[in-house]
């Protein structure tokens, strides 16, 4: 049997998870009538979007960023400020916010990516703290610590996209599209190059892969996905505050990525769902959540460094074999 045949002849197997997730997403608003739960579902989709970018950055390039919430926030604030203070139409504001975030990420990428390991983590953490301080201090623009109010809703051809149900569809549609694009990329030539990056520079460079350019592109792409999630978030809640984008949110994003398994696209969705649903099950007070996230991150990294989802899959397989 040739690889060409096995890899290409069963496209339905590749499409299956998308079909399942799309069907589940399409039916959810009918099954879930509680608007709180529905908006929680949208939030899971938004976080999964940001986690997808982070997942590529950590899983492919091996670069842990604890500043991803800053890009999430940059998207949200840029789009919010442009609509609230400058009266830009929402679509244009989102485009401008993404452009701005892309440029900021591009400028930050070169110096940031020279760092590795702990230094990179500290630098990105610092970046996040600077962002939070700017949001709090620049009151005339950001509304300071009390937040930015009156962000307009999204609408398309007279349909309000920021209603709970429509927004849910929008977010999961965008997420599925992004996952599809990413998985296309990962299984082709540039994707193989990306997957070789975390080996260190020696191998990819000797194969003709421009490592620095690839890492910069990944960093910018991860920032853009976080910013896109941020834009959607701002125009859905129509209110944002610095607290939603602080370093604890960055920690949460990294934990989601680790739980889902590094470099595992579907794992990121699981990680986002797991960490956002956990406090609902536990009825936990918000204050202990960062503690809980830190604990989960530690446990995952110690006992299943390849991610909680792959570990659960392995366990299920073993139990299945034990019975079979």
């Amino acid at each position: 049997m040739s690889a060409g045949r096995t890899a290409a002849a069963r496209p339905w197997r590749r499409l299956l998870p998308y079909a399942i997730l799309a069907t589940a997403a399409a039916l959810t608003p009918f099954a879930v009538t509680d608007t709180y739960l529905l908006s929680l579902g949208s939030l899971i989709g938004l976080f999964a979007l940001a986690v997808t970018g982070l997942n590529l950055l950590i899983g492919m390039a091996g670069q842990v960023s604890l500043g991803q919430a800053a890009f999430f926030g940059l998207g949200a604030y840029a789009s919010g400020i442009l609509t609230v203070h400058h009266g830009l139409p929402v679509g244009l504001a989102i485009a401008a916010a993404l452009t701005l975030t892309g440029l900021v990420a591009l400028v930050l990428a070169a110096p940031t990516l020279k760092l590795e390991g702990h230094n990179l983590v500290m630098a990105t953490l610092g970046l996040n703290m600077i962002f939070t301080i700017v949001c709090i201090q620049w009151e005339s623009m950001t509304g300071g610590s009390s937040g930015l109010f009156g962000i307009p809703a999204m609408s398309l051809a007279g349909v309000n996209l920021s209603s709970d149900r429509n927004f849910f569809y929008l977010v999961w549609g965008v997420l599925l599209a992004v996952l599809w694009l990413c998985s296309n990329l990962l299984r082709t030539r540039p994707g193989r190059a990306l997957r070789s990056l975390h080996q260190g520079d020696l191998l990819p460079v000797s194969l003709g892969i421009p490592v620095v350019q690839y890492k910069i592109a990944l960093f910018v792409a991860a920032a853009l996905l976080a910013a896109l999630a941020g834009c959607l978030y701002a125009h859905y809640l129509q209110f944002i505050s610095p607290h939603s984008f602080d370093m604890f949110v960055s920690l949460q994003l990294v934990t989601m990525t680790a739980v889902g398994g590094l470099g595992n696209l579907w794992g990121g969705v699981f990680g986002a769902a797991f960490l956002l649903l956990l406090p609902e099950w536990l009825h936990a007070v918000p204050d202990v959540m960062p503690l809980l996230h830190g604990l989960i991150l530690m446990i995952v990294l110690m006992f299943c460094p390849r991610g909680l989802l792959p570990a659960l899959k392995n366990m299920a397989r073993k139990i299945w074999r034990g019975h079979g």
Partner: peptide, 18 residues
């Protein structure tokens, strides 16, 4: 296939969109 990296001509966006 990593050894064939430099032989590819299709750009990132072509691959993204399959």
């Amino acid at each position: 296939l990593l050894g064939l990296h430099t032989q590819g001509r299709v750009g990132v966006f072509g691959h993204l969109l399959r």
